[in-house]
Amino acid sequence: MSASEAIAAAYRASCLDELDALKPGNVHAFADGHRMAVADFVASAEISAPPLAESGAPVGRRVLRAVEATMERVGQNTNLGILLLCAPLARAAEAGPPLRPALAAVLDGFDAADARDVFAAIRRANPGGLGRAERHDVTDPAAPVSLRAAMAEAAPRDAIARAYVTGFADLFAIGLPALAAARARGLAPPWCTTALYLAYLARVPDSHVARKHGAERAEALRTEAEALLALDLAAAPVDVLLDRDRAWKAARLNPGTSADFTVATLFLARLLEAGA
């Protein structure tokens, strides 16, 4: 298996693992939601893997081609956030090891083409609640010269943009430790993923919820998620989590950013385990 094929396989497996886990408010194997089905995400993972893992491709091209393939296949945005987080990791895995310094170099090395392609991908996916920005607005046909500068502008209101500025710090400070702790407790893989998702949701107000419902509601959701950390996931509390799942979906709350970070963490863990 080539390096590109291994990265694509790790990406697909991470997307599918995230779907297998009960993630309240999001789409998962226990329940669809938000006019999306698990099958949409399975198809998205399959069709976006080759462009995401294209050998030697810059980050912007990976994101744009993967978004275009997804939109052509499923007709809606199922994975923009996932791709924005996983494309730099995939590029860094080619350059490393060690992966973390390679990731820093990738984030420092964006050019104008990366900015143009990422902005085009965001326009194509048209994520909900995007709004307008005074500078570096994604609807502006003139893409910014610096993708890093555009992400820095969006960082205060968007966790994925903030990751581009902080070197993906949340993956290393929240995600990997939460995943390691869940595995150390002997949880089955889907419940490790649930623990990982809840860790993000309880630590950082979800950006997708904040964009659509406001910062106050996102913080309230974070507090609700924090209470769920007391659950014994080893006992597989399906009923309790499904009750919360139904309540959040009825309120149209979709913690999509937390789910995106969950996939990215699973992907990062696989890359590191493979020696990246």
Rank of each mutant, 00 (worst) to 15 (best):
A45M: 10
A161E: 07
P101M: 13
L19V: 11
V63L: 03
A225S: 04
E216W: 07
D260T: 12
G167E: 10
S48T: 15
L89P: 09
L16N: 06
D40W: 00
G175V: 06
E68L: 15
G128I: 04
E72S: 12
A149S: 15
D243T: 12
S146E: 07
T257K: 05
A113T: 13
D111G: 14
Y11P: 10
A95V: 03
E224Q: 12
A133H: 07
A225M: 01
A163M: 09
P51H: 08
L103G: 13
R124Q: 14
A230M: 02
A10N: 10
G56C: 05
E219N: 10
R244I: 02
V67L: 04
A142W: 03
L179T: 13
R162G: 04
R203L: 06
A49Y: 03
R148V: 09
G56K: 02
R124S: 13
R65D: 15
D111Y: 07
A150H: 08
W191V: 05
G60L: 07
E72I: 07
A173N: 14
A95P: 05
V238C: 06
Y164M: 03
R124D: 10
F30A: 15
L229K: 00
G167N: 12
A13E: 13
A49D: 07
E219T: 13
A102P: 09
R65P: 06
C86N: 01
S207V: 02
F110T: 03
H213W: 03
P156D: 11
E68S: 09
L130D: 03
G75V: 06
G167V: 12
A155D: 10
L241A: 08
A13F: 01
A37P: 02
E273R: 10
R244E: 07
R252Y: 09
P190L: 05
E219H: 11
A215H: 09
R73H: 12
K23M: 12
V145M: 11
A180D: 15
V106A: 03
A31N: 01
L253N: 00
A195E: 10
P141W: 07
R222G: 06
V263E: 00
L253D: 02
G214H: 05
M71P: 04
A105K: 07
L99C: 11
A53G: 15
V138H: 11
A21E: 08
P24R: 00
P141H: 04
A259I: 06
R222A: 10
P51Y: 12
F267W: 04
A115I: 10
G81I: 03
M151I: 11
Y164K: 01
M151F: 13
A276I: 02
P88Y: 08
R162S: 13
T194M: 08
R222Y: 10
E134R: 14
A152G: 14
R62M: 05
D260W: 01
A150C: 06
R244V: 02
A115Q: 00
A143P: 11
V204D: 09
A202E: 06
L228N: 09
R62G: 04
A31T: 04
D206T: 12
A57S: 09
L198H: 04
